[in-house]
């Protein structure tokens, strides 16, 4: 059983969002970078749990990024995983990233490919679906539970107002979200061990991106809160009804 876990580097959830170069680039200086939480907490930890159940399982991590992504790769290896692959390319667009990941996935012959449900920076939720198409594999998105019985995966995915349980034969691409696993903190043994785990660097394949970011903008500032006295909640309801007209 071989699992490929796709990880991405994102700004920390509390990072200040600002832009430079005439609002065309994220202001990354001084920002704390983390493993995209969906990739780490759900995709990677669930893969580690599967390996704990079946120690013959091999977990490879992959990311597309320049050398500055290596700290988060090491952190991911400290949590678990046998080796990591870094495709030495920039985040050009989702199709470019998915194509690089697909190349790695084809070479490795994986039974299972995990991604997070989206990255918390670009919120694209595009990589898993694109990757599945490029690999011609079934794709289950927004998975909240994943179980394996031989070569059949039982996966619970979120649907509007409920959930759906699907069965699918491996190989499969799964995008992971809350419910799959619980966040873990790497221990000292993991951190020490991560230093000696293999980290392969591959050059990207030539792929033309299909989209580009023209510019960013911040939402307009709020006008400020209108406070109503705690003695008079009826006034709040009146304002919502007559002024905001929300009901």
């Amino acid at each position: 059983m071989k699992i490929l876990v796709c990880i991405s580097k994102t700004p920390d959830t509390t990072a200040k969002i600002a832009f430079t170069d005439n609002n065309t680039k994220f202001a990354g200086d001084g920002v704390q970078w983390i493993i995209n939480p969906y990739d780490e907490w759900y995709a990677l930890v669930r893969a580690i749990e599967l390996k704990e159940k079946d120690p013959a399982t091999v977990i490879h991590l992959v990311t597309v990024g320049l050398a500055d992504t290596e700290p988060i790769i090491r952190k991911a290896l400290a949590l678990g995983g046998d080796e990591a692959i870094r495709v030495n390319g920039e985040n050009a667009d989702p199709f470019y990233i998915a194509s690089q990941l697909a190349e790695v996935a084809r070479q490795g012959g994986y039974d299972l490919v995990f991604t997070g449900k989206e990255t918390i920076d670009y919120n694209g939720s595009a990589i898993g679906g694109m990757l599945a198409e490029l690999l011609d594999m079934p794709y289950i998105s927004l998975a909240a539970k994943f179980d394996l019985n031989g070569s059949v995966a039982t996966i619970v995915r979120e649907i509007e107002g409920g959930e759906e349980t699907d069965e699918v034969n491996l190989p499969v691409v799964v995008s992971c979200q809350k419910g799959m696993a619980e966040q873990r903190i790497p221990n000292m043994k993991g951190i020490m061990g991560a230093r000696s785990k293999p980290l392969k660097v591959l050059e990207p394949v030539a792929i033309a991106p299909l989209t580009s970011i023209a510019s960013f903008e911040l939402p307009p500032a709020k006008a400020g809160v209108k406070l109503v006295s705690a003695d008079n909640p009826a006034e709040l309801i009146r304002l919502l009804h007559e002024e905001a007209k929300v009901f």
Partner: peptide, 16 residues
């Protein structure tokens, strides 16, 4: 489109 979990917007150009 909405990016950074609702904290900003991006304008994405499509050329295909």
């Amino acid at each position: 489109k909405s990016v950074f979990s609702g904290k900003a917007f991006a304008h994405i150009s499509l050329k295909t």
